[in-house]
Every structure is written in structure tokens, then in C-alpha cells.
Computed example of a mutant assay.
Amino acid sequence: MKTDLQLKKEVTEELDWDPAIDAAAIGVEVREGVVTLSGHLPSYAEKLAAEHAAEKVSGVRAVVVNLDVRPTGEFSDEAIATAARDALQWHVHVPADAIKLRVEKGRVTLTGEVEWGYQSKLAERAVSQLRGVTGVTNQIKMRMRPAPNDVVERIEAALRRHAEREAKHISVSMKEGTVTLSGRVGSRAQRLAAVGAAWSAPGVGAVVDDLELS
């Protein structure tokens, strides 16, 4: 098992490795495997990148993000709203007409109703990368429809296609449109692949990620 000191060193190195992150602006503290990131960053996208970088490091149990977003330059809420609307309109897989957005002090709130769970995630990702955005609240709901009786089997089959060995260690259950994933995976990439497979299944309105990194 890695010590907290070793984890701090590796998280710091991972932040420095990513060219999209200003590692010098981020403080790293580790206690019992829990990483805390603190500091001020110029974009919400960089904040997300820092969080994901810390999660990549083997041995990290959890990440606490105390990073403030302070955009460089002046961005009015009206300008951000226009850019966000354009981003949704241009994204081929996002039903922009079904999504409404509100911007307050740089924070974008998404509402509406979509057919598929993955569309909600794509909409959130699209606006997260925009200049001036300080945060995103995703309140998009999925239009409820009956899930196929074999939806769990479909998700398990998708997991096997992505990584057959890791799929053996993942348990899938579903209740009232919510899929719960439990078990162990070897990396954050495998974790994201498992969650993505669950979101892509028909009738899935929420995904609970109880997967642990081994």
C-alpha cells in the first residue's frame, strides 16, 4: 500500500504531466488515501481535468475538490448563455431543443428532458468546456420509459465487449430505472467505460457508481 507521502508525490506529478493543468496553482494534501486539491483556477474545464488527474493515480481512495474557478477576463452571463446554447446546438448527439439553460454568475444550470441518459452527460460536458463557466448543475431528466427485461444482461454484455476480464468483477443491478454498479476495476479508464456502458442502455435514468479501484 502506498503511503500518503508517496501518493502526494504521484498526484503532484500527474497534475504536472497534464498540459491542460497549471499544477503550480494547485495545492495537494493527502490523508489516509484521500486527496484534497485546493487553489484557484481560470476555468471549470481545468478544475475537472485536475479532479480526473488525481483520480487516475493508483491508490487514491477519494478526491476532495476545494478549487475555486476565477475566469481571466470579463464574461457576462448573457455571453456565456449564448455560447452554451450554440455549443448544444452544434453537438450532433444532443437534442438542444429539449434542453433549457440558465446562467447565474457563471454557473450554468441545465434542465429539460431527453430520451437517453448519455445525452444528459454529453450536454453537461459540452458546456463545461466553455470560457467563463464557473460550474455546471445538471438537472436534465430522462423521459421515463419501460426498460427491456434483459437490460441488465445487455449492460453485462457491453462490459464484456469492453474488457472481459474486468467484467467478471463487476456486479450490475437495476431498480426503477436506476443501475447500480459494484465490484472492483483496475483503473479509472475501466471505471468510466463501465459507467458509460450503463448510461448507454435503454431505460436507464440514473447510474450509481459503487465501483472500487483495486
Rank of each mutant, 00 (worst) to 15 (best):
Thr109Trp: 00
Ala163Lys: 12
Ala158His: 08
Arg161Cys: 11
Met144Trp: 11
Trp90Ser: 11
Ile80Phe: 06
Leu122Lys: 09
His169Arg: 15
Ser171Phe: 08
Thr111Met: 07
Gly177Met: 03
Leu110Val: 10
Ala157Cys: 10
Val172Pro: 13
Arg131Pro: 09
Ala79Met: 11
Ala96His: 14
Glu115Asp: 14
Glu124Ser: 09
Val136Glu: 00
Glu156Leu: 15
Thr134His: 01
Gly117Tyr: 08
Ala83Phe: 02
Glu176Asn: 14
Glu113His: 08
Ile80Gln: 02
Ala147Cys: 05
Pro146Ile: 01
Glu166Thr: 14
Ser173Arg: 15
Gln129Asp: 08
Lys100Ser: 13
Ile155Ser: 06
Ala123Ile: 06
Arg160Ile: 12
Glu153Lys: 15
Gly112Phe: 08
Glu176Thr: 07
Asn138Tyr: 06
Leu159Tyr: 10
Leu88Glu: 01
Leu130Gly: 02
Val151Ala: 09
Asn149Gln: 14
Arg160Leu: 12
Ala126Gly: 01
Val152Phe: 12
Gly117Lys: 07
Thr180Pro: 08
Ala98Val: 03
Lys100Met: 05
Arg131Trp: 10
Trp116Glu: 04
Val151Cys: 08
Met174Phe: 07
Lys168Cys: 06
Asp97Tyr: 02
Arg165Gln: 12
Lys100Arg: 13
Ile170Asp: 04
Leu88Met: 11
Asn138Val: 07
Arg102Pro: 00
His93Arg: 13
Asn149Glu: 15
Leu110Trp: 06
Ala147His: 04
Ala84Ser: 14
Met142Asp: 00
Ser128Asp: 02
Ile99His: 04
Ser171Ile: 12
Thr137His: 01
Asp150Arg: 11
Arg107Met: 00
Lys121His: 05
Lys100Gly: 15
Ala167His: 10
Thr82Lys: 14
Thr134Ala: 01
Val127Met: 06
Glu78Tyr: 04
Ala158Glu: 15
Arg165Gly: 05
Gly106Val: 01
Lys100Val: 01
Val94Trp: 04
Asn138Cys: 07
Ala157Leu: 13
Thr137Ala: 02
Gly106Glu: 01
Val108Leu: 03
Leu181Glu: 07
Leu122Thr: 05
Ala96Asp: 12
Lys141Phe: 03
Gln89Arg: 14
Trp90Met: 09
Glu164Gln: 14
Ser173Gly: 15
Glu115Ser: 11
Leu88Phe: 05
Ala96Glu: 11
Ser76Ala: 09
Met142Pro: 01
Arg107Glu: 00
Ala158Tyr: 05
Gly177His: 02
Glu164Met: 13
Glu153Ile: 11
Gln89Val: 11
Thr178Trp: 03
Tyr118Val: 03
Ser173His: 13
Asp150Pro: 10
Ala163Ser: 15
Glu176Gly: 06
Leu88His: 05
Met142Gln: 12
Val103Phe: 05
Gly112Met: 09
Glu156Asn: 15
Pro148Thr: 06
Met174Ile: 14
Trp90Cys: 06
Thr82Cys: 09
Thr178Arg: 14
Arg165Ser: 13
Glu104Arg: 13
Val151Asn: 05
Ala79His: 09
Ala158Gly: 11
Met144Cys: 03
Phe75Arg: 04
Pro95Ala: 11
Val127Asp: 03
Gln89Asn: 08
Val136Pro: 00
Ala87Asp: 03
Gly117Ser: 07
Glu104Leu: 11
Arg161Phe: 10
Glu153Cys: 10
Ala98Thr: 09
Leu159Trp: 10
Ala96Arg: 10
Arg161Ile: 08
Glu176Lys: 12
His169Gln: 13
Val136Cys: 00
Arg131His: 12
Leu130Met: 07
Ser120Lys: 14
